[in-house]
Design a protein around this nucleic acid. Structure first.
Length: 604
RNA sequence: GGCCCCGUAGCUCAGUUGGUUAGAGCGCCGCCCUGUCACGGCGGAGGCCGCCGGUUCAAGUCCGGUCGGGGUCGCCA
């Protein structure tokens, strides 16, 4: 070892000891005759005193040093309470420059970030190896390791087997666009990177593993968000011979262990809410329960309204406390808020301090409606009532977004709270919309979760009777309005699977072509099974208190899937292109699946 | 794909109504400095104002386009 001690570990008890430290020059203060170097390693910072000017003078930020010296107590009054090692210092007898460092693109030293503002993300990512020397990024990556460790510990203790599944596989039936990899040995054919290990983990259940987990990299070729990366990580779990409660039980134990890492005790059991309740009360399937504002269903209240806009299948409202005094400009901004989400606008009524209703909508309401509105909406004098009318799903989605915005603007969200909830009983199917370019089958319905999600016990024998209302055996875990995990009990019976496919308009041939290997496996005694997958990056992000997934990924991509550090993706050479078979024409016999999926039924 | 915002020194930013030689803080380089810890002092270097085009006597500033970044909606079961 090049060192005897970690810099950040030195304490009064080490006084008198001769130590050798290694690390980087965090900062130096050169006084001519005596110089101070803050030496930083992974454990922290220690002050090194160098009395030889010849040695100290050439040192620069981020030089790599090996320092030998004696630990001494700092002179009276010279302690630095902001350093853990601030009561001591190392008086150097020998300083070896292990490496020099070029002038930095940005300041690495801790204090620097406060004085010259925050460094832009693109620069940080381009020099991520320097960024990682800074305390916050370093902490996030270390926390992530602890999170992995905690999950493994819980699952290992419960007899789960960690299994790696392929990353070169075939295009899976999940909703997102696949990343594709040309197969050199089969020109014209392509691998897909997995969107998740979904099918493989089910095969592992057929394989008798009974309890599987994996910290799995997943790939989806979709557009970016602060909370989305093209490659991301799931903690993937699957269990045999279980029902929903068993999976939830294991999932909660994992979550409890994770939040213990930041000294938060999650009360168990975590509350459950049906999907229908979440949509009705919060306008979303991932409600943020850190604040109490809820949607109010006023459809009945406005059943006979003269106001044409409210003559709709659904009329709902959400109350903004104290919102009555918003200036016109702000109320206009709410209109833009709604328009940006594809709605025509956002109706509102202002409730004056005296209870009088104002705003453009108020005069369109009947006398009786005005009289009872404040009570019906649960408003108070001084509040603003926002309305959305129309199809229930769209109107609730708008109100849900408004609710969140109200929470933010009014400071209603308790930032220190951790509000967990299971959202259960999601619909099994959703209508195929125009936007469903990735629909699996050609029918009127597509799976809400995925095609292998079982109907819940109430519906398993009769989901065909009412596909719109049939419920799935699925569950999502939501934390502070973030979906941090989701799973389901799977279909293990071939007849049920075929009935599901039938509803989705997926013929036997086509089903066989798309996931024949799974259906084949299910023919050989598939056990009842189910599981869950956690959004690992998002969970670490929450635990670290970071605003972006990028902060908890060692080498994240920036917008457009670009990596500023490696400059990937990059062009390939003509030779690579030829060899990879990118341009190979598929043989006519092997039609691309996408062409048969949408329109005509597969050949009989 | 739609909408919004941002591109000025290594970093973070300012730059007036279009008007002389484009500034600040930090960083960097040189010299000085024996108890600092955001050390201090003196001096210095550093700019394709993202790029292309247009308007104008004159463009960092106005207009059009383009590229890059961020956010958001669509999308992401």
């Amino acid at each position: 070892m090049l060192r005897t001690h970690y810099a950040g570990a030195l304490r009064l008890g080490d006084i008198g000891t001769t130590v050798t430290l290694t690390g980087w020059v965090d900062r130096r203060r050169d006084h001519g005759g005596v110089a101070f170097v803050d030496l930083r390693d992974s454990s922290g910072i220690a002050q090194v005193v160098i009395r030889d000017e010849e040695v100290a003078h050439p040192l620069r930020s981020e030089f790599v040093l090996q320092v030998t010296g004696t630990v001494g107590r700092r002179p009276e009054g010279n302690e630095n309470p902001s350093l853990a090692t601030g009561e001591v210092e190392v008086v150097a007898t020998d300083v070896v420059v292990l490496n020099s460092a070029a002038a930095l693109p940005f300041q690495v030293s801790t204090g620097a970030s406060e004085e010259s503002g925050v460094v832009g993300e693109e620069t940080r990512l381009k020099y991520r190896y320097l960024d990682l020397r800074r305390p916050a990024p370093a902490h996030a990556i270390r926390l992530r390791a602890k999170v992995n460790q905690a999950a493994r510990r819980v699952l290992d203790d419960q007899g789960f087997i960690e299994v790696e599944t392929p990353t070169l596989t075939r295009s899976t039936p999940e909703g997102a666009r696949d990343f594709l990899v040309p197969a050199r040995l089969a020109p014209g054919s392509w691998y897909a990177l997995p969107q998740s290990p979904q099918l493989f983990k089910q095969l592992l259940m057929v394989g008798g593993l009974e309890r599987y987990y994996q910290i799995a990299r997943c790939y989806r070729d979709e557009d970016f968000r602060a909370d989305r990366q093209p490659e991301f990580t799931q903690l993937d779990v699957e269990m045999s011979f279980v029902d929903q409660d068993d999976v939830i039980e294991v999932a909660e134990e994992v979550l409890v262990a994770l939040w213990q890492l930041i000294d938060v005790e999650i009360p168990r059991p975590i509350a459950r809410m049906t999907y229908a309740e979440a949509m009705t009360r919060y306008g979303t399937d991932k409600p943020d329960l850190r604040f109490a504002v809820e949607l109010v269903d006023l459809t009945e209240y406005f059943a006979d309204t003269p106001f044409r806009v409210f003559q709709a299948p659904y009329v709902g409202a959400v109350v903004m406390p104290g919102g009555a005094d918003q200036p016109r400009r702000t109320l206009d901004a709410w209109q833009d808020f709604a328009k940006q989400r594809g709605h025509r606008g956002l109706a509102y009524v202002l409730v004056g301090a005296d209870g009088e209703l104002t705003g453009p909508v108020a005069k369109n309401l009947s006398e009786a409606e005005r009289a009872g509105l404040v009570a019906a909406a649960g408003a108070q004098p001084g509040d603003c009532i926002f309305f959305a009318a129309g199809a229930a799903s769209g109107a609730r989605a708008l109100l849900g977004a408004v609710r969140l915005e109200i929470g933010r603007r009014c400071g209603l969200i308790d930032e220190s709270a951790w509000a967990f909830v299971w959202v259960v009983d999601a619909p099994l199917f959703k209508p195929v919309g125009e936007d469903d370019d990735v629909a699996v089958g050609g029918g009127a319905w597509t799976a809400t979760h995925h095609a292998f999600t079982s109907p819940n016990p109430d519906w398993i024998d009769r989901f065909e009777e009412d596909p719109a209302n049939a419920l799935s055996y699925a569950y999502d875990i939501v934390c502070n309005g973030n979906e941090i995990g989701g799973g389901s009990i799977r279909i293990h019976r071939r007849d049920v699977q075929q009935r599901i496919f039938a509803i989705m308009g997926l013929g036997e041939e086509e089903a066989q072509e798309k996931f024949g290997f799974l259906l084949d496996a299910f023919a050989y005694g598939a056990p009842p099974h189910g599981g869950i997958a956690f959004g690992w990056d998002r969970i670490v992000m929450l635990l670290a208190g970071e605003p972006s997934l990028r902060e908890v990924i060692a080498f994240p991509k920036s917008g457009g899937g670009y990596d500023p550090l490696t400059q990937a993706p990059a062009p390939i050479t003509p030779e690579q292109r030829k060899e990879a078979g990118v341009d190979a024409k598929p043989r006519s016999a092997e039609k691309a699946p996408a062409e048969t999926a949408a329109g005509s039924p597969p050949e009989a």
